[in-house]
């Protein structure tokens, strides 16, 4: 059977966060005019709500590498989490075909008191790899992380950069069609940055679709061919990356 076409289709997506234990009315007076964040409001049941995404529609095909730009709190991370399947839409629909890998948080599923090897196994299991797949990839991950004998040591004995190397190596070992990334995963020393860059390019090439949120326009130009601007939960249309300046100027 031929694998299904990789695609993302988002239609009229709205997503609101209910915030429990806060009264919106007492908040509102301080929020006369803000540039960051989604819209605060009350639902019909009277609970405080943050509208993080409203009425977003777009679709992506294989080969699309979409950059997300926008102020702090404009909804980029929320959109990525919705695409990963973690947040359910309040309205509208999200359809993703293909295996999804969400590299939103490098520390996902990492247990600092466990050894490097154990963490590779655990993280691999969470990402949906079978025990066999993980053992097959173990050497490759170990080599890439460059941690050698340290892999048998608990992660808490690692330096911050060493931890990031391992986390990055595991997170990027997955086989995925749709890659979701939040911010740029810039870790390690300059030598590792080079390696990481090449590995990511490779991963992006293998993956059909990339969605990357970042504040770094140079980086977006490097990795993406399309761009979308978020503002207060509202998305612009998807444009060619060469027109990123137009979108930025519109701000």
């Amino acid at each position: 059977m031929k694998p299904p076409e990789v695609s993302i289709a988002v239609t009229d997506l709205s997503l609101r966060f209910p915030v429990y234990g806060v009264d919106a009315k007492s908040l509102k007076k301080n929020l006369a005019r803000v540039t960051v964040g989604g819209r605060l409001g009350s639902s019909n049941t009277g609970a405080t709500e943050v509208t993080a995404l409203s009425n977003i529609s777009f679709s992506l095909r294989p080969g699309d590498r979409l950059g997300l730009i926008g102020h702090n709190g404009s909804g980029k991370t929320t959109l990525l989490r919705a695409l990963s399947g973690a947040y359910e839409p309040d309205e509208g629909q999200i359809e993703v075909r293909g295996r999804i890998a969400a590299l939103l948080d490098l520390s996902l599923g990492i247990d600092p008191s466990a050894t490097g090897v154990d963490n590779i196994r655990l993280r691999g299991r969470i990402a949906g790899m079978s025990t066999k797949e993980i053992e097959d990839k173990m050497d490759e991950i170990a080599t890439f992380s460059g941690l050698g004998p340290f892999l048998a040591m608990p992660m808490k004995t690692y330096s911050a950069g060493m931890q990031a190397r391992l986390a990055f190596a595991v997170a990027t070992a997955v086989e995925a069609d749709v890659l979701l990334m939040d911010e740029w995963i810039s870790v390690g020393d300059s030598e590792f940055k080079q390696l990481a860059h090449r590995r990511l390019l490779n991963l992006v090439e293998r993956a059909g679709i990339l969605v990357l949120a970042s504040h770094d326009t140079e980086l977006l130009r490097l990795y993406c061919n399309k761009v979308m601007r978020m503002e207060g939960g509202i998305a612009s249309e998807v444009k060619d990356i060469r027109r990123i300046d137009e979108l930025l100027a519109a701000a």
Partner: peptide, 11 residues
């Protein structure tokens, strides 16, 4: 499946 994810609002 692992290959296909559909998420919608309440229906």
């Amino acid at each position: 499946s692992a290959q296909h994810m559909l998420r919608t609002g309440r229906r």
